[in-house]
Amino acid sequence: MTRRPTAFDLKADDVSHVRPGEAPLPDAAVIVEEAAETEDLPVPLPSARRRFPWSRLFFGAVAGILSLAIGLWLDQLVRELFARDDWLGWLAIGLIALAVLAVVAIAAREIAGLIWLRRIDRMRKRADLAAVRDDRPEAEAVVGELMTLYADRPDLAPGRRATEARVHDVIDGRDRLVLAEADLLAPLDAAARRLVSDAAARVSVVTAVSPRAAIDVIFVVVATLGLIRRLAALYGGRPGFIGLARLTRLVLTHLAVTGSIAIGDGLAQQLIGHGLAAKLSARLGEGVINGLLTARVGVAAIDVCRPLPFLERRRPQLSEIMAGIRAPRAK
Rank of each mutant, 00 (worst) to 15 (best):
Q269W: 14
R249D: 06
P187Y: 04
D128I: 13
L271Y: 04
L57W: 10
L177M: 04
N290P: 08
I218H: 14
G173F: 07
P316K: 06
E22P: 06
T224I: 06
G266P: 01
V209G: 07
V170I: 08
T207E: 03
G60D: 14
R329M: 13
S319H: 08
A162N: 08
L101W: 08
P5A: 07
V167L: 15
G259D: 00
R51W: 08
A108H: 12
A162L: 07
G240Q: 07
A83Q: 11
R194V: 07
A7T: 15
R166P: 04
G324P: 06
E164P: 01
L318G: 02
G89Q: 05
L247E: 03
L149S: 02
V251Y: 06
S210T: 04
G259W: 00
F59T: 12
D172C: 12
G64I: 15
V206R: 14
A214T: 08
T294Y: 10
S319W: 13
P44C: 08
F82M: 05
L10R: 06
A232V: 08
L227C: 05
V142R: 00
V100L: 14
L188T: 00
P154I: 00
A108R: 15
A127Y: 02
L252W: 00
R118P: 03
P42F: 09
Q269I: 08
L95M: 10
A23G: 09
S16I: 10
L185I: 00
L10G: 06
I218A: 14
G226M: 07
Q317K: 12
V103Q: 10
F219M: 10
E181L: 01
L308D: 01
V167F: 14
A69R: 05
F58A: 14
P309A: 01
Q270P: 12
D75G: 12
V170T: 03
A63L: 10
E164H: 03
K331S: 08
A105Q: 09
R3G: 12
D85P: 02
V32Y: 01
V178W: 02
N290F: 15
P24L: 02
Y235K: 01
R174C: 01
L276V: 09
P307A: 00
R84H: 11
E145Q: 00
R109E: 04
D216I: 12
K331G: 10
A300F: 04
I70Q: 11
Y150K: 00
D9H: 03
A12S: 04
D86P: 11
E34S: 11
R229N: 12
S47H: 12
R238E: 08
V103E: 13
T224P: 05
Q76W: 10
S47D: 09
F59V: 14
V100K: 07
L247Y: 03
E164Q: 11
R161E: 05
W87H: 14
L255V: 03
L25T: 13
L184W: 00
P5G: 11
R119F: 06
R160C: 01
D172F: 13
T253F: 10
G259Y: 00
F8S: 05
C305N: 02
S197V: 08
D14W: 09
L311P: 01
G291Q: 03
G159P: 03
P187H: 03
I93A: 06
R230D: 04
S319F: 15
R329I: 12
V167E: 07
S16D: 12
R84D: 15
S67E: 13
D135H: 13
L231A: 03
P26E: 06
A63D: 14
V220H: 05
R230H: 09
R174V: 10
P154V: 00
L247T: 02
A23E: 14
